[in-house]
Each structure stands twice: as C-alpha cells, then as structure tokens.
C-alpha cells in the first residue's frame, strides 16, 4: 500500500471508528472537556491571585518620619535615601516631602477641605517610604529592619503595620503551598480520569485489537488508529473546554462584585489560552490512547 493510501485508510479508519463508537467518543470528549475547563480555570484563578498577592506585597511598606533638624543642609535627602538603601532587606525608597504630604492629605480630605483651614503645609513631617524585599516580609526579619531605622539619628518615628505583614506573609506561604498541592492534585485527577475513560474505550474494542494482532498487525499498526482517535477526542474536548470557560465567565461575571472579577480573568491572551487548552487536550487524548493500547497489547 502506498504511503498516501495508508494515511487515507488510517484517517478513514479512525474517523469511522469515532462514528461507530460515538457514545464512548462523546463520553471521552466530555471528560477531557470538563477536566480541562476546570484545570484551566483553576490555573487562571491561581495566576490572578498570585499576581494580586504580589501587588499587595508591593503595597506593604515602612514609613519613617524625618526629624526637621535632619533636613537642614545640602544633600541631606540624598544622604538619608542612601543610608536607607544600604540597610539589608530594603527594595526601594521613596521620599515624601512636607509639600507632598500636605497635597496627599488634601486630596484625601476632598470635600472636607475646611478641616485643613489654618493648617500650614510645613506642619506635616517629611518622610520616606520603604518597600521590603519579599523574603524580609516575615515577622522577625521585618522587625529587625524597623529596629535599625529607629536607631537612625534622623528618624523621628517609624510606622510599620507588623501584624498585617506577618499575617500577609503567613497567608502567602499557605497560599503557595495550598495552590501548589491543589494544582498537582487537579492535574493528577485530570490525567487519571481521562486515561481511565480512554482505557474503557480501548477495552470496549479489545476483540478488534486481538483480531488485528492475530492476523499479523504490528503493535504500531494497531496503535495508530487509536492514537488518531485520541487526538480527535482531545481536539473535541479542547473545543468543549474553551466553550465551557467562555460560557462560565459570561455567566459568572454579571453576578460577581466588580472588585472580584479580576479573579476569573484570563491572565494571558485568549489566543494563547485557547492554544494551550487545545494542546493539552490533544496531549491528554493521544497519551491516554497510547498508554492504554500499549498496556493492552502487552497482555495480548
């Protein structure tokens, strides 16, 4: 048989087999589809929450109010910023002048400006805002940093929400471990469900496989139609998963508070997300078929 007619026969045999075993094909495709949709949505939520957690982390900072006396003399601000950056654990330093502090307060009191009547811009202290490296957000290390700033001769007062940082750091650690565990579990469950569903379809056709083997078919000849079928089922499952994700978002978004909608956002471009879902669906279908047929042929 020429290669061309071999391929035509192979594709014909695979599509014919999909048609003949429509019920099992539909069940496999549905399993792949729902499993992929759940897994993909979990990954989206994980990536979104991880990004949000990082953003919140960036907002955690130490405020050091500067003594007025320390501000006298040229280059004093640069000296304070330099000394601050030299402290281990400090990621960045931002200087807030007295005028900036006043403008910020004013902006925050919009509509109640009368309260600020008579308050001079110079009444508020200048400060620096320090952001910590993530590994310094843990309680003892952060407290050490705060203590060093308290001892600086130019520091008037140090404000640091220690409790919040500790809770945040603990949450971050828990979230990472829990999400990693849940992710591994979900991938394992998806692979298990899909490979078992595919195995059922292979076992449902064990007579056919046995007969092919008895009339002299090589293992690869037997595996190929199942492989093509697995790819087709993976493709259909991928298509279904994209539909479920899209429909799920559409149904959820209108019922979700605006500030929570970011959780279900697709964190990458839709094209990339769809391509990834399809690719994983194809890999699941093909690998499931190959593993199941190989295991079955070994027992023949």
């Amino acid at each position: 048989m020429s290669k061309g007619s071999n391929i035509v026969h192979l594709l014909g045999s695979a599509t014919g087999s999909v048609r003949d075993n429509l019920a099992t094909t539909v069940v496999t495709a549905l399993t792949v589809g729902f499993s992929l949709a759940i897994l993909a949505q979990f990954l989206f939520v994980f990536i979104n929450l991880d990004a949000a957690v990082s953003t919140w982390g960036d907002r955690t900072h130490i405020v050091v109010y500067i003594k007025d006396t320390a501000m006298r003399g040229p280059g004093s601000i640069e000296r304070i910023k330099g000394a601050s950056l030299a402290v281990p654990g400090i990621k960045s330093v931002a200087y807030i002048s007295k005028d900036d502090a006043y403008a910020e307060l004013k902006a925050g009191m919009k509509g109640h400006e009368a309260v600020l009547a008579g308050v001079d811009a110079g009444a508020l202290p200048a400060s620096i805002e320090l952001r910590l490296d993530p590994e310094y957000m843990e309680g003892a290390k952060a407290a050490g940093v705060v203590e060093r700033f308290k001892k600086m001769d130019w520091a008037e007062e140090v404000q640091y929400s220690q409790e919040w940082v500790e809770k945040f750091a603990a949450f971050l650690r828990f979230f990472e471990v829990a999400a990693f565990g849940a992710g591994i579990f979900l991938v394992g469950v998806t692979v298990f469900i899909v490979s078992n569903t595919v195995r059922l379809t292979v076992y449902a056709r064990q007579d056919e496989i046995e007969i092919m083997s008895l009339v002299g078919a090589t293992d690869n000849y037997i595996k190929l139609p199942f492989f093509v079928e697995g790819v087709l089922q993976g493709l259909i499952g991928g298509l279904l998963a994209v539909f479920i994700i899209y429909a799920g978002r559409w149904a959820l978004l209108s019922r979700m508070p605006v500030y929570l909608r970011f959780v279900v956002d697709v964190p990458v471009s839709w094209t990339m997300a769809v391509a990834a879902v399809f690719a994983f669906g194809i890999v699941l279908g093909a690998a499931g078929s190959l593993l199941s047929t190989s295991r079955f042929l070994k027992s023949c």
């Binding site: 048989m1 020429s2 007619s5 071999n6 026969h9 003949d20 007969i211 092919m212 009339v215 002299g216 078919a217 090589t218 000849y221």
Partner: peptide, 19 residues
C-alpha cells in the same frame, strides 16, 4: 459489526497490500 469484505481485507491491510 463489519462487512464480510472488511473482515477478509483486514488480513491484507495489516500487511500493507495496495488497495
């Protein structure tokens, strides 16, 4: 569930006999 022809042809198909 296959035809008589398909059953007999299977023995040749696995050998790669031209159509």
């Amino acid at each position: 569930d296959k035809t008589v022809f398909d059953n007999v042809a299977l023995a040749l198909r696995v050998m790669g006999v031209e159509t």
